[in-house]
Computed example of a mutant assay.
Amino acid sequence: MFRTFGIAAAALGLMGAAPADWRALDPENTLVLETTKGRVVVELRPEFAPKGVERIKLLAREGVYDGLQFHRVIDGFVAQTGNPNNRDGGTSRHPDLPPEFSFRIPAAAATVVVERSDAREGFVGATPFQAVSAAEQALRPDPRLRGWGAYCPGVVGMGRQADPGSANSEIFVMRAAARRLDHEYTVVGRVVAGGEAVQGLAVGEPPKVPDLMLKVRVAADLPESERPRLEILDERGRAFREHVESLKRANGAAFSICDVEVRSRVR
């Protein structure tokens, strides 16, 4: 199960967090899902998958997602939606997308929180990633960080069929960690508010009475008064680093980036 923290929980857990420790969402890369279980806010990360993010925003702006069912919801795994025919295998009128299972980004764009001999782990915004080790990176002429999205709770990916290049319109939200999906499905972002709504979706394949995405919008397209008034704990800030270090001390060798929950507050 995953949670996203509202203002009360954030205030209790981060009493020492200064205003500079929080950051606003980028409206152009914020997806707002109005569902039958409540509002879900997703921070999209084009650094991970520029084509996937572009497609999701296009479909939202075309109204393709409005009214679609969460047609496959599995406890402890995923909630899937986004197929125009409300079942696996549906596609939009747009062509399928190439796989975006890994990325290369400037090292300064990422926050590494774990350095291991065989890998690094960290965050771009609220979205977790794993990357090759510093030693392996040093063997290559390209200085950019080479990594891939980590399927932790709340991470949003693009569904596909057996062909790796068959992502089109389907999206899914992780209801729990499933790192076996890393390298296999395109990561486009992470839920930063509304985790309770995702956990409350009717379960089934399909559910007997499926929940719906009533409306899906890019926040930049909403009137200012209707946009999410959220700030996210900045992964580059002191409070975030201290929070991660406390989790490392508590969990020891078992620590994983999937232990780091999204913390948000209403501004």
Rank of each mutant, 00 (worst) to 15 (best):
D21I: 04
R55M: 15
P27L: 07
F77A: 13
R140L: 13
H183Y: 15
G13N: 11
A202Y: 05
S256Q: 11
K208P: 05
E28A: 08
V40R: 00
V203G: 03
P223R: 07
S169K: 00
V260T: 03
A79C: 09
E170S: 08
R263K: 11
A202M: 12
Q199V: 06
R160H: 10
E136S: 14
G157V: 08
S225L: 07
L68G: 05
L31Q: 03
P141D: 07
R23G: 12
A131G: 06
N85E: 10
K57E: 11
R190C: 09
G6T: 08
P207C: 08
E245D: 15
V244H: 03
E100Y: 05
S264F: 01
R227W: 01
R263D: 01
R265S: 03
F123V: 01
A10D: 02
R236T: 15
G125N: 02
P153W: 04
Y185M: 11
M174L: 14
T35C: 12
S225W: 03
A79N: 14
R87F: 09
A202I: 13
M213G: 01
E34H: 10
R140D: 14
R160S: 08
L230S: 00
L12C: 08
K51H: 06
A220G: 08
L222P: 00
V173M: 09
D88V: 13
D182A: 12
L212H: 09
I171A: 01
R241S: 15
P46L: 05
D234H: 02
S169L: 01
L247H: 04
E224I: 06
P50V: 12
F77W: 15
E235L: 05
K51T: 00
M1F: 13
V198A: 06
A178N: 07
P128K: 00
S246D: 10
F103E: 04
K215R: 14
T4Y: 02
V191F: 05
A250Y: 14
G67M: 07
I105P: 11
E196F: 07
Q130P: 00
I257A: 13
R93D: 14
A126W: 01
R179T: 15
Q161C: 00
N29L: 04
